[in-house]
Amino acid sequence: MSSITDQHHEHEQHGISRRSMLKASAALVAGGVPAALAVSSASAQADAAAANAATPAVPGLATHLNINGHRFDATLDPRTTLLDALREHAHLTGTKKGCDHGQCGACTVLVDGRRINSCLTLAVMHEGAQITTIEGLAHDDQLHPMQQAFLQHDGFQCGYCTSGQICSAVGMLAEVRQGMPSHVSADLQAKPLLSEAEIRERMAGNICRCSAYPNIVQAIQQAAGQRS
């Protein structure tokens, strides 16, 4: 059985002594905070400090990414998402962080031509892959046809979701060219026709809080060559 002295030393090892706890309690009670709450808060701070001290630092990992045709080298925490690598390390802030849970589509980028939510994948998983962000769609001063169509049809309002919408639409058209059906495709064997229903179904993972959906549909139809 531990003695009172042992318990006192144990509290001091966790960064808090009985004396400092009593002082904190007295100060907080004087300020109108109940003593029980003060003791609980002090204990929680001690536990948090002990937990932080016990958590080992994660070593950085040398990571090599190919972004928009250029090699990007960085030392990253292996838990870094592709979204955070793009925004915080490569400083390509066109890719937006919306929900950070893969539910809004604002972070959509293309990896080897396939659209993905960059907030749901780790950067280190994509070494050797071709990553394309909104910044990499245009060539020199010439906009990508999808970017041009969004401009002509006002497929945006606040613009926050636009980069994800455009990258997703580019990836979606590639899926259609490959003959990949959607939930609303009438014929699973034939090449899908880009009706409004098809486009809305295929773009359902990209949310526009400004509700510019009709214009987005028209822009995609134009980029697909089905509208003038």
Results as ranks from 00 to 15, higher is better:
residue 125 M to P: 00
residue 110 L to W: 03
residue 56 P to L: 05
residue 145 P to K: 07
residue 156 F to L: 10
residue 121 T to G: 01
residue 182 S to N: 11
residue 159 G to D: 05
residue 209 R to A: 13
residue 1 M to A: 14
residue 106 A to M: 06
residue 116 I to R: 02
residue 99 C to H: 07
residue 46 A to H: 04
residue 107 C to W: 06
residue 28 L to Y: 11
residue 102 G to V: 09
residue 127 E to M: 09
residue 65 L to I: 00
residue 80 T to Y: 01
residue 57 A to H: 06
residue 215 N to K: 12
residue 167 C to M: 09
residue 204 A to E: 08
residue 29 V to E: 15
residue 119 C to R: 03
residue 37 L to A: 14
residue 7 Q to K: 13
residue 117 N to R: 13
residue 107 C to P: 05
residue 31 G to A: 14
residue 116 I to T: 00
residue 171 G to M: 05
residue 67 I to R: 07
residue 30 A to Q: 13
residue 200 R to G: 10
residue 59 P to W: 00
residue 21 M to C: 08
residue 189 Q to P: 00
residue 102 G to T: 00
residue 109 V to P: 00
residue 6 D to K: 13
residue 109 V to K: 00
residue 53 A to I: 01
residue 75 T to R: 13
residue 87 R to K: 06
residue 222 Q to T: 03
residue 75 T to F: 01
residue 193 L to P: 04
residue 146 M to I: 04
residue 182 S to D: 11
residue 137 L to I: 02
residue 17 S to P: 10
residue 4 I to H: 15
residue 223 A to L: 04
residue 146 M to R: 04
residue 69 G to S: 06
residue 103 Q to L: 14
residue 129 A to C: 14
residue 85 A to M: 03
residue 155 G to D: 05
residue 107 C to M: 03
residue 95 T to V: 10
residue 138 A to V: 01
residue 48 A to K: 14
residue 97 K to Q: 08
residue 10 E to W: 05
residue 37 L to I: 11
residue 44 A to R: 15
residue 175 E to N: 07
residue 59 P to S: 11
residue 166 I to D: 02
residue 188 L to E: 14
residue 32 G to I: 07
residue 208 C to S: 07
residue 24 A to I: 07
residue 102 G to I: 06
residue 199 I to E: 07
residue 100 D to F: 11
residue 10 E to C: 05
residue 98 G to Y: 02
residue 44 A to Q: 15
residue 182 S to M: 07
residue 221 Q to L: 13
residue 45 Q to A: 15
residue 75 T to H: 10
residue 77 D to A: 00
residue 128 G to F: 07
residue 9 H to T: 01
residue 6 D to E: 15
residue 1 M to D: 15
residue 222 Q to M: 09
residue 201 E to L: 01
residue 196 E to S: 10
residue 191 K to T: 07
residue 193 L to Q: 14
residue 4 I to P: 08
residue 170 V to K: 03
residue 23 K to C: 08
residue 105 G to Y: 02
residue 222 Q to H: 11
residue 71 R to V: 01
residue 228 S to V: 10
residue 116 I to K: 04
residue 211 S to E: 12
residue 193 L to A: 15
residue 126 H to G: 06
residue 197 A to E: 14
residue 106 A to G: 06
residue 176 V to M: 14
residue 60 G to Q: 09
residue 144 H to E: 03
residue 63 T to Y: 09
residue 36 A to S: 10
residue 101 H to E: 14
residue 84 D to A: 10
residue 147 Q to W: 03
residue 57 A to N: 05
residue 125 M to R: 12
residue 117 N to H: 13
residue 132 T to D: 12
residue 209 R to P: 15
residue 172 M to N: 05
residue 18 R to V: 07
residue 18 R to C: 11
residue 191 K to H: 14
residue 193 L to K: 12
residue 202 R to I: 02
residue 183 H to W: 12
residue 49 A to E: 12
residue 99 C to R: 01
residue 1 M to P: 15
residue 224 A to H: 07
residue 105 G to T: 02
residue 89 H to V: 09
residue 4 I to C: 12
residue 43 S to N: 12
residue 201 E to C: 10
residue 225 G to E: 04
residue 187 D to H: 15
residue 190 A to T: 08
